[in-house]
């Protein structure tokens, strides 16, 4: 793919970029911090969190404050990531976030970065919230589960400020792979999983239970059974004879090292002869 090389200005300095790539990528690549909650490189820009806003400084642009995840760079684009206008809006947004997800320490950290340590707004607190009053509805868990893992266990329920994320009818799901991709990708630490012996419980997803595989060697539970195929596929090319099956990563590494060493020793021996 041959994209034209262009020059962009961020906070006064020049940087190289490929024409059409999102500005946030350019910034991050060059160590410039632009906060975001719903941006994930492997997924299409979603535009939900509005935290990555920047101000376009070029003349004649109608909309100055735009999200940098949907700002496709062109030659000569000039933006400021922390202008007065941007900070003004970002702070208000952070206040809204603190009110929406009062329990998230990650959010509080982010807010403090911009000097926001309290919110004027009414806090949303739900009793027994499966997402720990920390969900900001960024959609990453839904999109990862659907578009990356293909499991489609959870989705948005309802609309507007009553929107929630969970399984259909808030019931336990048969489809969950137990991969924990949702928890990994969650920017506010809202999603909770508990490993209880041989069962992984998705506490946030209506206590959906997923069976875990036991390592043949050490007995540790190391991965969901449903991911069996995918794990084995990963190792297929090195494990054609199925020797490394049902092993936890540690034991598998040890076994592979032993195997490789054995092969190497054989080769050396062959040479030696």
């Amino acid at each position: 793919m041959n994209a034209k090389e262009v020059q962009v200005y961020i906070n006064g300095k020049t940087y190289g970029a490929s024409e059409g790539e999102p500005l946030i990528g350019v910034a991050r690549r060059n160590g410039i911090f632009i906060p975001s909650l719903c941006y994930e490189e492997s997924l299409e820009p979603y535009g939900a969190c509005r935290m990555c806003i920047v101000e376009i400084k070029n003349e004649g642009v109608k909309k100055r404050i735009v999200t940098s995840c949907t700002l496709h760079v062109f030659d000569g684009l000039s933006v400021e990531t922390d202008s007065e206008e941007v900070l003004k809006h970002r702070k208000v947004l952070l206040e809204l976030y603190l009110a929406q997800a009062p329990n998230s320490s990650k959010l509080k950290e982010l807010a403090l970065k911009y000097g926001v340590n309290r919110t004027r707004f009414r806090q949303k607190v739900r009793d027994n919230d499966p997402l720990n009053n920390s969900c900001v509805l960024c959609g990453l868990c839904v999109r990862v589960c659907s578009e990356v893992m293909g499991a489609r266990v959870i989705s948005f329920i309802g609309r507007g400020e009553k929107t929630r994320v969970n399984t259909p009818y808030f019931e336990q799901s048969e489809l969950c792979l137990g991969c924990r991709a949702c928890a990994e990708v969650c920017p506010t630490g809202a999603i909770e999983f508990r490993d209880d012996g041989g069962i992984r419980v998705a506490a946030s997803w209506s206590n959906t239970k997923v069976e875990l595989k036991k390592c043949n060697v050490c007995g540790k539970y190391y991965a969901p059974v449903k991911l069996d195929k995918r794990i084995d596929t990963l190792y297929y090319y090195r494990d054609k004879d199925g020797e490394l099956r049902d092993m936890c990563p540690d034991c598998r590494r040890k076994a592979m090292t032993r195997k490789m060493t054995l092969i190497a020793e054989n080769e050396v021996e062959k040479y030696a002869k």
Partner: peptide, 9 residues
Amino acid sequence: CGKCVPCRE
């Protein structure tokens, strides 16, 4: 629709 924070919250 509830997607973005400024509108929803």
